[in-house]
């Protein structure tokens, strides 16, 4: 069966069908991200300054990732323009850069994520709070929380086989506190975000020597995971949803670039349309990041 109007414009809309389709889809995406952006505004406005841990993200890395994504958007349009001029080899080169940029973006994002999963905040019983890193047997501890310190009995399946061995309670652990806490900046009105921002990147200079922390002195322990605060909840929701879009966009572009390129020989016009439609999606993903970057990293 032939799908109508996948090359020729439909007389009533003036568009080939896939283009109207992608714009309808993007309209629904605007609502999806719009709802989450609005949630961000509501959470941000209602959070007290000392409980809004901004300044913990690494700005140079975030800026670099912004450049990577912008560059990938440019190579998409340049690749599309090359195809319009019948230069298939040139299109392939540009679109290969797009795919590499997408993978680069995701790799950098996952490094940022793992930095968060190994970075902690402790609420002490005496009221003060510290951020820093926990080391166990010389290695960084991942995903610890208050429950980790309490230990857990072994998990057994129905037959009595041990699925997960028991973890003993931890009475004391090694903690390398950061030089400053993010709420310090909030205390001095707008304060020194520059000082706060060093925390993540300054493992060498901004971190005090390791100390022993007693579990008995702790009210709460959390890594910078969604459960830490509303800030990290919305940060991970927005960036993970955006990352998923980057991943799906990269897969689609890679398919059209690789196995799907046969279409160029049989129906070049339809092939160019595919590039345009996947490109529209890709630019949308870039556009979302243009707003995500300042609100999550800078504001």
């Amino acid at each position: 069966m032939e799908i109508p109007y996948n090359v020729k414009s439909r007389p009533d809309t003036g568009l080939y069908n896939a283009k109207l389709g992608i714009w309808l889809f993007l309209a629904s995406e605007v609502m999806l991200f719009g709802g989450l952006f609005t949630s961000y505004v509501v959470l941000r406005v209602n959070a007290s300054a000392e409980n809004w841990p901004h300044g913990l993200l690494n700005i140079p890395i975030g800026t670099f990732n912004t450049f990577v994504l912008i560059a990938s958007s440019v190579t998409v349009v340049l690749g599309w323009a090359a195809l319009k001029m019948n230069n298939f080899a040139r299109y392939r080169k540009f679109q290969a850069i797009t795919i590499l940029c997408a993978l680069g973006f995701l790799s950098i994002k996952s490094i940022e994520y793992s930095d968060k999963f190994t970075h902690y905040e402790i609420w002490f019983k005496d009221g003060h709070r510290q951020t820093g890193h926990i080391h166990q047997d010389g290695k960084k501890a991942w995903f610890w929380n208050t429950k980790t310190l309490a230990g857990a009995p072994a998990v057994k399946d129905a037959k009595g086989n041990v699925v997960k061995p028991a973890s003993p309670p931890i009475a004391e652990f090694e903690f390398s506190p950061d030089a400053t806490h993010y709420s310090d900046a909030a205390k001095h009105t707008k304060g020194e975000p520059a000082a706060a921002e060093h925390k993540e990147s300054a493992h060498a200079s901004g971190e005090h020597a390791a100390v022993k922390v007693k579990t008995a002195d702790i009210k709460r322990l959390s890594a910078f995971v969604p459960a830490h605060s509303t800030y990290f909840a919305i940060y991970f929701t927005l960036t993970a949803l955006h990352g998923l879009h980057v991943l799906i966009g990269a897969v689609v572009i890679a398919y059209i670039w690789g196995p799907g390129a046969k279409l160029w020989k049989t129906n070049p016009e339809q092939y160019v349309n595919r590039i345009e439609v996947s490109g529209l999606f890709w630019h949308f993903v870039d556009l979302v990041w243009i707003f995500l970057f300042p609100i999550l990293y800078l504001l």
Binding site: A27, H283, F284
Partner: peptide, 18 residues
Amino acid sequence: VACYFMHLIDERKMIYSL
């Protein structure tokens, strides 16, 4: 990005209304 990369500066009426 929207006007130039996504070509909205020179697009069909249908998309504008959408």
